[in-house]
Design a protein around this nucleic acid. Sequence first.
DNA 1: CCTGCCGGGGG
DNA 2: CCCCCGGCAGG
Length: 377
Amino acid sequence: MTFPAFQQEDVKYDVSQKLPDQQFLLFTTKEEDLKTAETKKPNRAHEYEKENTRSVCLLEQKRKVVSSNIDVPPARKSSEELDMDKVTAAMVLTSLSTSPLVRSPPVRPNESLNGSWKEGGFVPSSTSSSGYWSWNAPSDQSNPSTPSPPLSADSFKVFRTPSQTDDGIDEAETSNLLFDEPIPRKRKNSMKVMFKCLWKNCGKVLSTAAGIQKHIRTIHLGRVGESDYSDGEEDFYYTEIRLNTDSVADGLSSLSPVSPSLASPPAFPTQDAIRPETSCAKTETKLMTPLSRSAPTNLYLVHTDHAYQVSPTHNRPAGSGEQKQSHTVLSSPPRVAFGLRKPRGEGKKCRKVYGMENRDMWCTACRWKKACQRFID
DNA sequence: CCTGCCGGGGG
DNA sequence: CCCCCGGCAGG
């Protein structure tokens, strides 16, 4: 009698906070559907996938709704963050409008060069719950001053004259060498790496990846309780930017068709692409958003991340690959460059797993003779 | 050989 | 879009 109200309140709050978990519900439900369907109609496997994608979108929307409806509990921000915010916001704007952005070649932790992932494939480590984040969290902690995400400097590759394939390899190697250097000696002074929130109408800029992630997590995703937990989603809503504190020379040099010296991105391939599936992977290892794998691999050749800077409005859904393209561009595709096929996955594929007889159990991609989405290497 | 899957084409 | 499949290329 006296506590009903209290309880209600409690529940309400709980629900909203937990919304993200809805995802699992969706999937679970779907799975059941699938199972029942499986016994009847062939071809549902692929529908399952469709649904899956849809679910993700749904979830996405829900989150947005939640984050805007709920008055997100005052996320705790460090005063540092706040200051950064203001001071840099202006800088960012200026720099954005003045020159093309140049991503700092992120200093890659060795692990990423030969870790559990390779060439765009990313195998979530099963040993730790945070495995999916191997690049993100760790690099952040150990390297507070360096950008962690696979960021890229973008554009110049686009200007390169399409040369033969060997060239690509060459470049990749060169890049790798450069990684060892602390930083591309050319222009590193007075460069500040910041992270900008891409959430609609936000544009917050923080100095650390961790900071921006937390920001997104708490403010936009409405995950307040679990400040540590991260399914990687935040990464979709921020991008790295470089602030030139003293000149514009930077922007110019980046435009120069001949500045391979700069193009020294960590061999950090399409890992982002995996991100979308990260959450799913937890429960459903075999499912992932379409394109997540193949798209990025192809796109990084063409993409200039400007589009994304300007219109951070879109969400990750299907085009997951694109969203993060900005980060991926600079990263030199390991040993593959232009027109070269990607190394070909080696893991089991639908065809092998289910056999020709059960073709209808294959993932859509496999059925279409595309890169398998279910058993990613 | 077999197999993954790109590129391209048809509905 | 969704779907197929020729044919190339790695193993």
